[in-house]
């Protein structure tokens, strides 16, 4: 009796996995190198929706949402208010450990893909990402959250692209990820969610790394870890160049 129950359970479990689609994804690169002529980067995520004979047929079309979350940092949003005739920084809010870069690339508008509760649960879209109460002082006004998202969008660090996922065939897709030059170095998590009729079917995660290389890397390490030596080098090169100018342009 016990044995057959267990067998039934195993059978059910394997059926459950067999009925859902599987996502297979691959990035065009797993390492973005910043060098002296770096102006940002473009990555392509390729993916395939794997089905087998037992996969349930879907009534609606497939939807895909690719969310890229960059390294987390604390950000300060400050508000200027008039003080007499001057505009001075008065209020400030802390956004603790939030991704500096956040791109939501999807096959159509996020609002059409899933209903609000599901969007919030799966954190689909910029709005949902910051919908739940954020850590930090609870005085967080809505205008501060709005300003945070707006300013990050202006920097090109927060993006929403409802046409970024393109289906090549019925089951094969491609998504474009754009990194601006100011996107920070570090690890970027890429999460791909497959939905149909507003219900999540499958989920797949991968990541890539953005790092400075060669001269840029050496400069940053020197400036950060050996500030005094870096300062000496900066001052010395300024003096040498200043002196060189008097040699090159010497007026006799």
């Amino acid at each position: 009796m016990k044995r057959s129950a267990l067998a039934l359970l195993i059978c059910l479990a394997s059926m459950a996995t067999a009925t859902a689609e599987t996502l297979v994804t691959s990035l065009s690169t797993y390492r973005v190198a910043i060098n002296s002529n770096y102006t940002g980067a473009s990555l392509i995520l390729f993916g395939s929706i794997e089905r087998d004979a037992r996969t349930a047929p879907r009534a609606g079309p497939y939807d895909l949402v690719v969310t890229v979350r960059g390294p987390r940092r604390t950000a300060l949003v400050r508000e200027k208010e008039p003080l007499g005739p001057l505009w001075i920084t008065r209020g400030q809010r802390r956004f603790v450990d939030q991704p500096v870069y956040l791109a939501v690339v999807s096959s159509r508008a996020i609002d059409d893909i899933a209903a609000a509760p599901m969007r919030e649960r799966l954190k689909l879209g910029l709005e949902a990402e910051f919908a739940s109460p954020l850590p930090g002082p609870n005085l967080m006004g809505e205008d501060f959250v709005e300003a945070f998202i707006r300013l990050r969008r202006q920097q090109g660090l927060f993006q929403e692209d409802p046409e970024g996922v393109v289906f090549l065939t019925q089951n094969l897709f491609r998504a474009k990820i754009d990194l601006p030059a100011i996107a920070p170095t570090g690890l970027y998590e890429v999460e791909t969610i497959l939905l149909s009729d507003g219900v999540p079917l499958s989920r797949q995660s991968t990541n890539f790394e953005v790092e400075k290389t060669g001269f840029e890397q050496a400069t940053v390490v020197l400036a950060r870890d050996h500030g005094f030596i870096y300062g000496l080098i900066a001052a010395a090169s300024a003096l040498v160049l200043g002196w060189l100018a008097t040699v090159v342009f010497r007026r006799e």
Partner: peptide, 25 residues
Amino acid sequence: ATIMHATSNHSVDLVLALLLIVGGV
């Protein structure tokens, strides 16, 4: 000032400085 800024706030950008110096000279 260059050395102190570099030591205390790591804000001296050498590449920027060199370009400005060459143009300035």
